[in-house]
Amino acid sequence: MGIAGKLAVGAVLLCGVGAAAFWILTEPVRLDAAEIAAVESGNPVKGERIFWAGGCTSCHARPKAEGDAKLELVGGVELKTQFGTFVAPNISQDPTDGIGAWSAEDFANAVLKGVSPSGEHFYPAFPYASYARMKSSDVADLYAFMKTLPAVAGKAADHSLSFPFNIRRGLGLWKLLYVSPEPVVALNDSATEAQIAGRYLVEGPGHCGECHTPRDLIGGTRKSRWLAGATAAEGNGIVPNLTSGEGGITWSESEIADYLETGFTPDFDSAGGTMAEVQRNMAKLTKEDRAAIAAYLKAIPPHPNGYPPRQQPAN
């Protein structure tokens, strides 16, 4: 065999090894048996709190739905990002168009692992990078609550993404980098119960970091600038810095809790943009939950703004 032939064989072998490694590394990973055992029977009443904390309706209700129509999780909200357009799917109890046929195990694999019942990766527009930090018992309660919601027929449109983001299997690598059940902020031993409870709500179900933390080139949150604010995924706005670093919020704990309850800032400006919807969800939690979120936000490390200073557009 000539040198060219040897090289060709080598290249094919290398490609083969690469492909095998890719295949192994990108394999969708499901929950193990012990984790599944923990999601067997949930409490729908407790699940409602998780439902609002998780903000499910903000993406999965019909665009602009209000009142009880918010509980019709037919999907359709579009998220236009640099990777393409994501469309929130139907997660109502419809057995064919929605998730009515899913078992508790299927549901837990979706929420905690980002894996569909057929074994495909979900895109992280579904914020499982945060939900991975949720307690199995909360996922079980959420499942039980969602079982009480209506079945609504109708399939949402498919995502429309550019290469290479349209290859789902590749998300396995992304998950290795960015999905972990570990908390982001290491609170010290003297942390209060409220701070720990708030960390769970913010970093887990509340998925605040998905918008309030800047992302890197492949869309992972930069944990070193956690909650430092970010350029908005859509439009040309920004998402505020929640830390006490330069440009961040200077509100007191009770002011943060009040804002989450009433939608008013200490200056009586109101929540706006996508936060208006989030705030209405937060208003459905308990006072203790909102106080816990505030306590955690006052305890996180300070960072300067995670978005560039505003450019004056040319007139």
């Binding site: 439009g235 920004i238 109101s270 706006g272 208006a276 209405r280």
Partner: peptide
């Protein structure tokens, strides 16, 4: 009265700083 603040700001305002 104040529900008007949030619903209008939700759609017609963008946070820029």
């Amino acid at each position: 009265v104040t529900s008007n603040c949030g619903t209008c700001h939700e759609t017609f305002r963008i946070k820029k700083s």
